[in-house]
Structures are given as C-alpha cells and as structure tokens.
Design a binder for these strands. Structure first.
Length: 199
DNA sequence: CCTACGATCGTCT
DNA sequence: GACGATCGTAGGT
C-alpha cells in the first residue's frame, strides 16, 4: 500500500490533484475524506509558493512526492499540501476541505463552535480539526502519525474552477471539488487589504 | 444567503 | 516594511 502512494502521486500535478478527492488524510484519531483540493504547479505557476525559486519555507516542495508541506499564514492559520510529481518539480496539492469520517468528537473539541460540516471546510479549518501545524511540515505520509490513503477509484463527478484567494493566475481552473458535497468551501476572490491608519 | 472588515506574524525583499 | 493559498463576526437582504 505504501509503495503505491508514491507511484500514484508521481505524475503531473493536474492529473494527480483530482485523484486526491476521496482520499483519506489521517492524523492520529481524526481522519478526513478529502472533498476539495487545488493544484500548484511549481515555478511555472504565479500562484505557487515555489514561483520565485527555492527558499527555506518551500524547500520541502522540491523533495520527493508523498510528503506534507505545511505553511503558516495570516499570522494565525496553517494550511497543508501534499507534495506531488517527480522530485524537483516543486508541485503540490493544497488540501482545502473534507468530511470528518473518524474522531468526530475530537474534531468537535478542537473547533467547538463549528457545525459538523464546517469542521474541515476550508484549508485552515481542516488543519485545525486535524491538529496539523508547522511541526508536521515535511512529514512522510506513507507511515507514522500522519497518513494519506488514496481511494481505489477516481471520483467520477468532480467539478473544476478558479483557485480561492489568489491574486496571481486567478484565471487557471485548478481547483477540484466533489460536486454537491456540503463540506466544500465557498469561493472567495482575493481581497485587497486596506492600510491601517497611521497613529 | 450575502458583503465587509480586522486580527496577527512568518516570510521574503 | 509589505503582504498573505484565511477565518469569525457583524450586519444587511
């Protein structure tokens, strides 16, 4: 099983991304069935963290597929990606949303004010429900506390559209989701932030 | 359902 | 020093 994961992820990111729909991402007692992802195509993609070449933060993207890339953003949120494609291509798939299929009580305790369908509805919410943070960056998803299991069959009814919250390359329809699933996040365009008043 | 807005800090220039 | 692959809340429709 573990050997398969590496092979299944070792292809073009636009082919691999929809194959992650219905995959199960687990950390410890909590497991999520993935319902929404986005593809990021390494240095060719203005939306990718690897667009400007290697840095300390994105280093793991250049490594072998099947590892987790976790980043911290907006001063308070974590998001996680599965590194895919041949080593060195620096492509990754952002895990944007999912349905809790195990450890529901634990997930609820981590996000007490959420309705169940909102527990992992959004990339930072999903990381919160799974207790994923920077200490999980670079984790090998084949074994250990964090694991990824792909479903045997490709999801037959997925939809595609523009990625969420991007300023660059906002036109590329590289978001993939399971059509009609209530745990898929709502689309939000990039926002222009207003400068805080000088004091 | 929708839109608007502020929180808050790691990362890169 | 500027910005962000976001979220929760407030308030309107």
């Amino acid at each position: 099983m573990s050997a398969d994961l590496q092979a299944l992820l070792d292809g073009p990111v636009l082919d691999v991304a929809p194959r992650l729909l219905n995959a199960v991402l687990r950390k410890g007692a909590v497991a999520v069935r993935v319902t929404e992802v986005e593809a990021y195509d390494g240095p060719n993609d203005p939306g990718s963290h690897a667009f400007n070449g290697p840095t300390r933060r994105n280093e793991i993207m250049y490594g072998e597929p099947g590892h987790l890339y976790v980043y911290f953003t907006y001063g308070m949120h974590h998001c996680c990606n599965v590194v895919v494609g041949p080593e060195g291509t620096a492509s990754a798939v952002l895990v944007r949303a999912g349905e809790i299929i195990d450890g529901l009580e634990t997930a609820r305790s981590r996000r007490p004010k959420s309705r169940d369908r909102d527990l992992a509805r959004g990339p930072a919410r999903l990381c919160k429900a799974l207790d994923i943070d920077l200490s999980d960056n670079t984790a090998d998803l084949r074994s250990g506390v964090l694991t990824l299991q792909l479903s045997g069959e490709p999801e037959p009814t997925f939809a595609t559209g523009p990625r969420v919250g991007l300023r660059g390359a906002a036109d590329r329809p590289w978001r993939f989701w399971i059509d009609g699933d209530p745990t898929v996040s709502t689309y939000r365009p990039a926002v222009v932030r207003t400068r805080k008043a000088q004091g």
